[in-house]
């Protein structure tokens, strides 16, 4: 049996939606709803184009729709009832969407925040005084470990993954050093500056300074800060970024 064109067109439209919404997550990642909306608009245009290129297609597509809306002499009770249902459901749907848009919603402000601010001039030019001292490397690492576990572990965690015991109480989550997008993408000099200045010392674009990172220059000596940074790289197995 051949399906009427209206059914085919609606079928294609719904199938496209199902593929974008539920099929794509299997192939790539789930699509954001704005992208799905854009794709579905394209599908709608394509379907309308397809049915209106030829005159007989045009009639076989719009014919059943117009006759459903205006109603015909021989319509049975079922057809009448479904027409009334459609006439009621569509306005209610739009009314509901309007309500969703105008009803007051109280979402806490979520200010934009730059996580890795462009380092000011002062962030460059720090050099690790222990660089190249292979003979004492292991010693420095153990000292760095001690400093980490007496100061940093509570937020950044035993596994350096940002899941310390206080992490859930913090509003900007502690950095996850085990993630390949943190310390491995930063230069040692920047890490040193960030550790030294903490959340308070961030430049203006990092407002509102929600980071709870203490300015460690008040508590740790310069050498202690370098040793703990060496420990971060040793433990995670990453190398600091350098000038290529």
């Amino acid at each position: 049996m051949r399906l009427p064109l209206v059914a085919k067109a609606f079928g294609a439209w719904i199938l496209s939606y199902v593929i974008f919404k539920f099929g794509m997550p299997f192939i790539t990642s789930p699509l954001p709803s704005s992208i799905i909306f854009m794709y579905m608009s394209l599908v709608t245009v394509a379907v309308l184009l397809f049915v209106s290129v030829f005159e007989d297609d045009f009639h076989s597509f719009f014919g059943p729709i117009t006759s459903f809306i205006r109603g015909e002499e021989g319509d049975g009770v079922g057809r009448k009832m479904s027409r009334i249902a459609v006439f009621i459901i569509i306005p209610l749907f739009f009314g509901f969407r309007t309500y969703e848009n105008v009803k007051p919603s109280f979402e806490a402000p979520f200010p934009q925040r730059v996580i890795h601010p462009a380092p000011p001039g002062e962030a460059a030019g720090f050099t690790n005084p222990f660089e190249g001292d292979e003979a004492h490397y292991e010693e420095y690492i153990q000292e760095g470990r001690k400093i980490y576990y007496e100061n940093c572990v509570f937020c950044h965690g035993d596994k350096l993954d940002g899941h310390g015991i206080f992490a859930n109480a913090l509003n900007v989550k502690p950095a996850n050093f085990a993630d390949p997008t943190t310390i491995s993408m930063l230069m040692e000099s920047f890490v040193f500056w960030r550790v030294s200045k903490g959340g308070i010392g961030l430049p203006g674009e990092s407002t509102p300074w929600d980071s709870a990172m203490p300015p460690w220059e008040l508590i740790l000596t310069e050498e202690e800060r370098w040793k703990v940074i060496m420990f971060l790289y040793e433990y995670t197995g990453f190398k600091p970024r350098t000038w290529e």
């Binding site: 306005p91 739009f94 309007t98 309500y99 105008v102 009803k103 007051p104 806490a108 913090l170 509003n171």
Partner: peptide
């Protein structure tokens, strides 16, 4: 850390006006 407190205002009247107007227009 900082959170927020909001004294939730009384629901504005427009919330009860717009949706019925839209329903009537679409119908």
């Amino acid at each position: 850390p900082w959170y927020f407190v909001l004294m939730t205002p009384e629901t504005p009247k427009s919330v009860y006006i717009f949706p019925p107007v839209v329903v009537i227009i679409v119908f």
